[in-house]
Amino acid sequence: MHMIELTTPASLEKVQLGVIAVRNIAAAYYQIVTGKVPGEENVFLDSVELAAGEACTNAVKYSPAGKAEAHRLQVCFALEEDYLVVMIKDQNAAFDFATVMPPDFAETPESGYGIYLMKETMDEVSYQRKDGWNILKLKKRFGTGE
């Protein structure tokens, strides 16, 4: 069950605010689940912030040209056992998540790190297409913060 849901226009400016909100909401879950107040330096929160930020930025990047503001993206939060689940949903064209390759590190590309960073910082990343929505599901286990 989704416990919190954010909706934002698909623009980089709005996404910045959204990602700050994601960190703060994740911090609230962290405190509720672990009983600890997260400090400023917290690997769990840094990971969720980065992965969600990359997912939201990709959602804006692949919005139909010139219509990004008209499109919305949703960020939903849920708890699954000892994991925080963050789902990023957009209505862009479907994509083949399974075939997205990691960056060619030997070439140090200027872009293309987004999904790789999500996978590196999260415990699980999955994708599904449902009812016209792309849904990226990010899972991070509590207790990886210190």
């Binding site: 990602v19 912030e49 980065l50 930020g53 990359e54 930025t57 140090t108 590309p109 200027e110 872009s111 293309g112 790190y113 987004g114 960073l117």
Partner: peptide, 13 residues
């Protein structure tokens, strides 16, 4: 306080 792949990419460029 935060850098993502977009910021990093602009440094590489």
């Amino acid at each position: 306080s935060y850098i993502d792949s977009g910021g990093l990419g602009s440094l590489v460029t």
